[in-house]
């Protein structure tokens, strides 16, 4: 399918359902190395996003759906994840501004812009045991898929797989950012909840493109 505004709405709706489903898991992961509310916060935020994208007028562009979603996340997630994911979607919106359909090159641009927003906002780099570890592997995988001439849906699949494996690599990492960094060595062996929610969201993007 072509990736138009309907895809973004389907993406956000699928993400909301998956986050709601896995909120207890995200809470558990966060309880181990943070303050235990990542699932609850993300569920509140994506429920608001899901309701907001339903209300958008017909003929809205992908960038408009992304921007509306970003604003909802910023205003309703609470905690650090709101500004981080909100900035990701704001920058993603800028990357596809004016387009009614997102082609494969712009799928990559969208993902790169989202990663850039998260890095700028969180001042985190790969290896810090944050959501950047999922996003950066996802973007690398998407870049390779574009170079191989894959379709948009295949690129999103590659990104989702990359995010999943990037999240897994956070298990062994020592945290350098956020509340988990207060734990130092004790956080090793635990998966970063933000990296896991990233994998959930990017899987939803790929599923929505099918």
């Amino acid at each position: 399918m072509s990736l138009d505004a309907t895809w973004v709405v389907a993406w956000m709706t699928a993400a909301a359902a998956a986050i709601a489903d896995q909120a207890p898991t995200l809470n558990d992961l966060d309880r181990a190395i943070g303050d235990g509310d990542h699932g609850e916060n993300m569920n509140r935020g994506f429920t608001a996003v899901r309701d907001a994208v339903r209300e958008l007028p017909d003929g809205a562009q992908p960038a408009e759906v992304l921007r509306a979603s970003a604003m909802k996340l910023i205003s309703s997630v609470g905690g650090a994840a709101g500004p981080l994911y909100g900035t990701a979607l704001l920058r993603a919106s800028d990357a596809v501004a004016g387009l009614s359909e997102v082609d494969s090159a712009h799928v990559l641009a969208l993902l790169e812009a989202a990663l850039g927003g998260i890095e700028d906002r969180g001042h985190a780099a790969p290896g810090d045991k944050t959501m950047v570890d999922a996003w950066s592997v996802a973007v690398d995988a998407a870049r390779s898929a574009v170079a191989e001439g894959r379709t948009s849906a295949e690129i999103l699949d590659a990104a989702a797989d990359g995010a999943e494996s990037g999240a897994e690599t956070t298990d062994a990492m020592l945290p350098h950012k956020g509340r988990a960094s207060y734990l130092g060595e004790r956080a090793v062996g635990h998966r970063d909840p933000g990296a896991v929610s990233t994998a959930i969201i990017l899987l939803a993007a790929a599923e929505a493109a099918k």
């Binding site: 910023i74 905690g79 650090a80 709101g82 500004p83 981080l84 909100g86 900035t87 906002r121 969180g122």
Partner: peptide
């Protein structure tokens, strides 16, 4: 997140 919120 106060810093993140302010920057956002």
């Amino acid at each position: 997140s106060a810093v993140l919120s302010a920057e956002t």
